[in-house]
């Protein structure tokens, strides 16, 4: 039976004819949030492993970017709000059922933590810095003494930050493309891969670069597995999920997704990293830029395509 629908009297902005409530701000935030989560995870994890001297880019240099990344992400989120003056309402409630709520609280922990972590390493990375005031030096000493505590909190919260970006979308059962629990692990893996890529870019240490290249290859392998697994799940599910998958399997998002995200953003950089580990000389920025590009595209495509996927009438 064929059914044709005419919906009259409804053309609500940002909702009709197809949902487009979220523009560039949300995927941009998901990207910078995921990248910051990846960097902070490696920084705290390697610190707890006692590798402070082996992996300086991961523990000391890359985290210096995270306060800026998180603030940019927060600004994008704020910009996206339609009722901006009420943003503080996020912090008058803790709603465990709403991933956006506990995400907001997670950001409230992670952002200051990233600032403090960077603060404790700032003078080590830039020896010319002079805090001028004695109390700032005292503060610095205090936080340096408590790095281990900070690392334990950060290793935990960076994973929450990384995974929540995916869970945020998967909680929307009205949008079948998002409504898959694999999105949490996929976005976490993608954020870790971006974090590893940034560390590789900043590292001047051959051992550190090789270590993170190896990690990155494993994570990209996991990402490809998650993507295949996601589509297997969709295709074995109900009609709405099959239609969501069809957006990527012959539908309008087929080429952008498989070429920009999977091929250029995952397979090519993984092969380049593999070649480099085998001794070929590959400019370090090429795989790094490709991974970051693939990361951005993954977020944009999933956020946009998810809004195009819907329940059947």
């Amino acid at each position: 039976m064929e059914e044709e629908l005419i919906i009259s009297g409804r053309m609500n902005p940002k909702v009709d004819p197809m949902l487009h409530i979220w523009g560039w701000e949300i995927p941009f935030y998901l990207f910078v949030g995921g990248l910051a989560a990846g960097v902070l995870f490696f920084a705290s994890f390697c610190y707890l492993q006692g590798k402070e001297h082996n992996y300086p880019a991961a523990i000391k240099i890359a985290p210096l970017f995270t306060p800026g990344l998180l603030v940019l992400g927060l600004m994008a989120l704020f910009w996206d709000l339609n009722h901006k003056v009420y943003f503080w309402r996020l912090y008058t409630n803790i709603r465990l059922e709403s991933p956006m709520s506990w995400g907001a609280w997670t950001l409230l922990v992670v952002t200051p933590l990233s600032v403090l972590w960077s603060f404790t390493y700032a003078r080590e990375v830039f020896p010319k810095i002079d805090w001028k005031k004695q109390w700032i030096y005292q503060l610095e000493r205090f936080f340096i003494q408590h790095r281990r505590t900070m690392a334990w909190i950060m290793v935990f919260y960076s994973v929450i930050l990384g995974i929540y970006t995916g869970i945020l979308l998967s909680a929307f059962n009205a949008r079948p493309l998002w409504n898959t629990s694999i999105l949490g692990p996929l976005f976490l893996a993608s954020g870790l891969s971006a974090g590893a890529a940034l560390i590789i870019w900043l590292s001047k240490n051959e051992i550190e670069r090789r270590f993170f290249s190896r990690i990155d290859i494993v994570i990209i392998g996991a990402e490809i597995f998650f993507i295949i697994h996601m589509f297997m799940g969709f295709l074995a599910s109900t009609e709405v999920q099959q239609e969501a998958a069809a957006l990527f399997l012959g539908g309008p998002y087929t080429l952008p997704f498989w070429i920009f995200v999977v091929f250029i953003g995952m397979i090519i950089p993984a092969l380049l990293e593999l070649l480099e580990l085998r001794g070929q000389r590959i400019p370090v920025y090429i795989p790094v830029v490709l991974i970051l590009f693939g990361n951005v595209m993954l977020r944009f495509i999933i956020v946009y395509a998810g809004q195009a996927s819907r329940y059947l009438y």
Binding site: V15, D16, I21, H83, K84, M100, N173, A174
Partner: peptide, 27 residues
């Protein structure tokens, strides 16, 4: 309206698309 931040989460979560962002900001 006094508690709504206009984040759009409820709009994205409604399978009937029954909500909309009011020009004043709230949903």
């Amino acid at each position: 309206p006094g508690q709504c931040i206009g984040c759009g989460a409820c709009i994205a979560s409604c399978p009937y698309d029954a909500r909309y962002p009011h020009p004043e900001g709230y949903v």
